[in-house]
């Protein structure tokens, strides 16, 4: 089972991204997924964890993942050293940051700049969907495109697809 943990603040789209990722995997024949948020005070600014679980058989374990294949941190202020302990062996931490960090498990993407450039707004979540498609050996860019077309409002689709393609290219290009 592959597990993705999303960490952000309410309003940054952590759960939306977790859900889109879940839907993208689930759209592939023979694949099952679960996507859910942690359930705390629902308001902008509150830390939100969200989870995407993916497997080739139906997933029975609905508890929040304790370890992740990929951990995505959408808000730098939520980054803590102990998060690296939540990675499975070989796992990666994707961080929304313009900085560079030497730990090879961490991949930094300036989602603020990328989303401002393409979407015109600072919305960091879809950036990381593109990154995951680039890093994951089963998920394809077309799977993400499919769910963007299926689940996002029409006027947001084209720009988001452009964004994920751009990020996919950058991450594939050797980060």
């Amino acid at each position: 089972m592959k597990e993705f943990i999303w960490i952000g603040r309410g309003g940054q789209g952590a759960f939306t991204a977790a859900r889109l990722l879940g839907a993208a995997f689930a759209s592939k024949p023979g694949m099952y997924s679960l996507a859910f948020p942690t359930f705390g005070p629902e308001r902008r600014g509150a830390p939100v964890n969200a989870y995407t679980k993916v497997d080739k058989k139906k997933i029975g374990n609905r508890a929040p993942s304790q370890k992740a294949d990929i951990l995505i941190v959408l808000d730098q202020s939520l980054l803590e050293h102990r998060l690296l302990d939540s990675l499975k062996p070989g796992g990666r931490l994707l961080l929304n940051s313009c900085d560079y960090l030497s730990d090879e498990r961490i991949l930094c993407l300036d989602a603020k700049e990328l989303s401002l450039e393409v979407l015109g707004r600072n919305i960091p979540n879809t950036v990381f969907l593109g990154a995951i498609a680039a890093l994951d050996n089963e998920l394809e860019l077309s799977d993400i495109e499919l769910v963007i077309k299926d689940l996002m409002p029409k006027k947001l689709q084209a720009k988001n697809i452009e964004l994920i393609k751009k990020v996919y290219g950058e991450v594939r290009g050797g980060r």
Binding site: G22, Y32, S33, A35, F36, P37, F39, R62
Partner: peptide
Amino acid sequence: GFALTHTFES
């Protein structure tokens, strides 16, 4: 509650 109501699946 939540484990089923708020968890997304196919």
